[in-house]
Amino acid sequence: MFGPTVTTTALASVQLMINQALKFDPVSKLRLQSLEGRLVRLTINNPAFVCFITAIDGELRLQSHGEQPEAEIRGSLSDLIKVFIEGKTNLADSQVEIIGSAGLVQQWQEFSKDIEIDWEEIISQYAGDTIGHQVAEVIRSSHAWGKARRENIRNQLLEYAIEEKQLLPNQALFKDFCERNQQLRLDIDRLEARIERLTQLLIDDESTSKD
């Protein structure tokens, strides 16, 4: 869609931003060592865009051109964000497709999922240690408060739907139902096998009495 200059400039800018951020997660450099020189093709269907991702000298590298990638991951932008940023592992209900080394894609997924940027260090560089610490504390407590509120709302909604409105089954009851269902399926399978065996015996008996 775009010429090499535009695409390469865009990727170089994104790469620069990511690597700048990764400097504040010292462990990421070590984790990138295992991905050194291993190329993955990223094919975004919607909007259509192709790029390559690899690691060189402890830094992440985004390329517009690559040859003989070890793996390719295809999907829409939103699906790929779910895989790499939210760490989604079940691809059954998504349009994501992996070709080649799934292990390598999983390594990249684990890498992106485990990134922990030290925001306090970044803020401190610009605002000084005292202000940086205070701002980071506010961010951390707001984040923790937000997380707790989200969890609380989720639990309350779930309880309301299960206990008050009885729209959903209780988790324990549902688990028990699933186990019984599984047991019943196994019993039916056994019964089916027995019937099959008895039928075969009857056929054998009939054929011997005829002889």
């Binding site: 090499p4 200059t5 390469t8 400039t9 170089a12 050194e36 020189g37 390329q63 517009s64 051109h65 690559g66 040859e67 003989q68």
Partner: peptide, 18 residues
Amino acid sequence: GIHRIWKRYTIEMSAARP
């Protein structure tokens, strides 16, 4: 500064490996 982008694309097209 665009010469850096041209050179970067050259590196990509080289497909150089360890």
